[in-house]
Amino acid sequence: MPPAMRSPKGLLLLLLAVLALAYPFASSSGYHLNVLTNALFFTVLAMSLNVIYGYAGLLSFAQVGFWGVGGYVGALTVTRLGGSVWDGMLAAGAVALLLAIAISAVSLRLSNHAFVIVSIAFTLLLQLLAQEWIDVTNGPMGIPGLPAPEIVLGPLYFAFDDRTSQYFLALAFAAATLAAIGLVLSSRVGRTLRMLKHDETLARSLGVRTTRWKVFAAGFAAVVAAMAGALYVFYLSIVDPTIFDVYYTQLMLVIVIVGGLGSFWPMIAAGFVLVVLPEVLRTSDEVRMIYYGVVLIAGVLFFPRGFAGLLAARRRRHSSGGRLGQPGSI
């Protein structure tokens, strides 16, 4: 048997991968595919919040700001500078990294609370900028008509210009990003971030340079959110100020909290459930949000530590002392 099939988790992953790859061929509904593509983007976005909030314990409202910065930087790189979509994503990541280091290094000198407030102000400011700096952002009209991502390799040419190929692109992006985040969080780096969250004073007494690690978490989370945002606007083919909408913040927070702060797989599951659920419940717009609300309240009441909390007791029984720094221990 290949190694991936030896554990139940590996088997489940394999099954999910097959399902994700086969789905577009089994269903002809563009609507379903659109919902799934959104779920991929929002799960990555929520995971970026999980890095900084769930792991490092820093509540950040700046993630939607970075998501929007990524969208605008990506769009402008293509429309103004003539770069490719991939250039746009890289530029988005770079700009977000610099901004994240700037706002976190300054605000964290004061306190974690200062960081929360600065993160709110940061997002509001960016939204204002997107609306009012008309020369660059085209104001509330946004920047429409963004091109589809394309691959040019010598004679090879491929454009992601239909729902199915865009779904596969989003799937590849989400898989790569989540795998990279998983690699970092399941390593000792993830443990160090959790040390900050649990007891910063104790971490410092053991020599952990806590401020540097918080800036690292902020930068890492910002790069992920911005690159996701950049790809997302090319999927929509437009970026406008609604990309900073509080809806995204609310969705991210709900996914992270329902999944379980600082969890990995349960959070990914929550991402899909919480994006797909409102669509499944779409009987009428009035009733839909009531269903959604009931499910959320029930979730928080009965599983206060999220999906992850449900699994934790079972996992604890299986854990021994020998999990020091092993991958997959999250």
Binding site: R191, T192, G207, V208, G321, R323
Partner: peptide
């Protein structure tokens, strides 16, 4: 007294060396 309650005893000990 401060220890990292949510981590194993072994991991708590290991954390003491990670910066060194």
């Amino acid at each position: 007294i401060r220890v990292f309650d949510g981590f194993s005893v072994l991991e708590n000990a290991a954390m003491g060396r990670q910066c060194f």
